[in-house]
Amino acid sequence: MAVNTPKTVAEPVVLEGEHSASAIRWAMLAEFWYYFRQNRGAVVGAAVFTIILLVAIFAPLIAPHDPITQVRGAFLKPPVWQAGGSWEYILGTDPVGRDILSRLIYGARFSLFVGLVVVTISVSVGVVVGLIAGYFRGPLDTFIMRLMDIILAFPSLLLALVLVAILGPGLLNAMIAIALVLQPHFVRLTRAAVMAEKNKDYVMAAKVAGASRMRLMFRTILPNCTAPLIVQGTLSFSNAILDAAALGFLGMGAQPPTPEWGTMLAEAREFVMRAWWVVTFPGLAILITVLAINLMGDGLRDALDPKLKRS
């Protein structure tokens, strides 16, 4: 993974043929881990993120209740440690008698799904557009970049709201809207990286060897621009989760009874004064997830950015 590893590599193991290839990959991975490990927050973030990921994948096995079933007679039960709480509903229930813990566990699925889809869309579109702008320059570049400037000029949530209002509320439309809002960052980043790499001698050498334009762009230049993109990708992941929760809260994202964290917050709005747990736990879930991902992104930056490398 490490892109520009420094010159002092752990003693290259001399093995024959294919074996040495995997040995080298291991050495590079070990080095990536060495730098990543230096940042303690990043390791904690990565651990928390892994737990959330596992919880999301195995939600049906872990969750004690069905997230949508409404239980009569269990309205607004407090968490277990508070008077009136029971082990049946560890984090209490919401105003219509659904188990909050189960809803949070299932909600992790939606949040991670949103993050994944949004990042995939915005990275793939952003990278291609940025590559074109950075490689060809000229009027095309100017046109693309001004368009991106216009998108960036809007407050991102406002633009997403407008788009959802046009497309109609719903999780899928919210994801498309958020992807569109986040994508200019990738365009700019890719363009800058491509412009820096484009004039390097190795690109020239590939050109002299007769490489086609497509090959130059995607096979030669693009792999050398990935480090900043990976970092921006993780940060956008958390941004996407936040924006999706915000849209959900405003009633423009996932629709009830979907156990989406933002939607959960919105549904419980009127009970904030009486039952603190209905808003606190979804809020905490969002906070912890976003924080973990951001910490991880920081560590990735340290491990992948050659400028910060001490060697």
Binding site: P6, Y34, S311
Partner: peptide, 10 residues
């Protein structure tokens, strides 16, 4: 003079 690096002391 020694430097600390990934690969140990240099």
């Amino acid at each position: 003079l020694t430097f600390d690096t990934v690969g140990g002391k240099l």
